[in-house]
Computed example of a mutant assay.
Amino acid sequence: MRLTRFQNKFVKKINISLWLAAIKPPIYTVAIIPITMGTIIAYRESGQLNWMIFSLFLLSGILIIAWLNLSNDVFDSETGIDVNKTTSVVNITGNKSLVFWVSNFCLAGAILALSAIGWLQQDWGVIGLVLLACFLGYTYQGPPFRLGYQGLGEIICFLCFGPIALSAAYYSQTQGFSWFLLVTSTIIGISTSLILFCSHFHQVEDDLAAGKRSPIVRLGTKTGANVLAGFTASIFILTIFWTILGYFPLSSLLIFLSLPSAYQLVRHVQTYHNQPQKVSNSKFIAVQFYCWSSCFLGLGLLIII
């Protein structure tokens, strides 16, 4: 009896761990941070902040990430690329149809929240921007496009969670656009794309078997690790560049406080790039760097020194 209870607790713990890994809670920062950064820039330039609009947009962003995660699991199950992926929601539930409809429900909820913003402001521009991002997000894994299988996922990620996401958040507060916003979005877009880039290192064999030409499949893990180091460094280089040109205030250099996290990411991937089990957590280290660098940059933009 004691052994049975222990086994039940052990199985329950494994199930919880699997579900947490499948749901990917840290990944939801890629919705929270761009929306927050776009709102910070809007506040910095206008001095006004509508909390109701911000809250509705944040809700829609979280629901869109849920839709992307679930629908991507569905689309990947159709190609067989996730056959060995224990953290696929489709594999855990064994019910692809249910996962598909839950994902669509999340998307419908996001559109409803965005519609509320449009109705409150009598301006539907923000919905157009977000629907554009959703369409590009669909092309990443969704048929007939599946552009992620051609190695274009990082470009899509950059556009969706950089310029488009920040512009939509900014527009929801100001009903306008800003060149300063686009400058900032380059840094957020690159740091977001690093998360996706890191997710490829541990699944090269599965990608090859499914015909997916991810950047790491094309480059190899060693070259990929060097490319990661270069793009990580570019975030700090661009910050200095935008500061020298006068786009960023001097306080934006607070982003350099995230250097330890950047070093941890680069060193980890450089060391374990060809060891799938050890490098598999690199995407979570990338999320950590993404959060720290974005938070310090956002703080610097608010201080304005």
Rank of each mutant, 00 (worst) to 15 (best):
S282M: 03
I127P: 00
W19F: 13
A110G: 13
Y247A: 14
C291R: 10
S178I: 01
V287F: 04
I285A: 01
N72V: 11
S282F: 02
A22P: 13
F241S: 11
F289Y: 14
A286L: 01
A31C: 13
T239E: 09
I111V: 15
E154N: 14
I235N: 15
T79F: 01
F197M: 07
G47N: 13
T192L: 03
L98T: 09
K24M: 08
M1L: 10
L98W: 14
S282T: 09
S199A: 13
V74T: 12
I187Q: 11
A168V: 04
T223N: 07
S88V: 07
L152Q: 14
T4Q: 14
G137E: 08
T186Y: 06
L136F: 15
F180L: 15
R146W: 09
I195C: 04
G151R: 11
G118S: 15
I92Q: 04
T192A: 11
F54V: 08
G80I: 10
W51L: 15
I155Y: 04
L129K: 10
T232R: 05
A225V: 01
C134W: 11
A233Y: 08
V11Y: 11
L136K: 14
N72H: 10
F231P: 02
Q150K: 15
L120I: 15
S199F: 02
C291M: 14
G61H: 06
V183P: 01
L228W: 04
N69R: 13
F284C: 01
L219R: 00
A286H: 02
S88L: 11
L20E: 02
S167I: 02
K12N: 09
Q122H: 11
P249M: 10
Q270D: 01
L302F: 13
V279C: 05
I23H: 02
M1V: 12
I188T: 12
W51N: 06
L228P: 01
Y263W: 12
Q121I: 00
A22Q: 06
K12W: 00
L114K: 06
F284Y: 13
I16H: 04
F100H: 13
E154I: 07
K278R: 11
K278H: 06
L20P: 00
Y171I: 03
G125N: 06
K13M: 08
G300F: 08
G246A: 11
C295D: 01
V217C: 07
S280P: 07
I244H: 07
S172L: 03
Q173R: 07
G220W: 04
L147Y: 13
R5S: 09
F105E: 00
T87I: 10
G153W: 00
V74W: 12
P260V: 08
V102E: 08
P249C: 10
E78M: 14
N226W: 07
I35T: 13
I244G: 03
A168Q: 02
D73H: 15
F158A: 04
P34A: 03
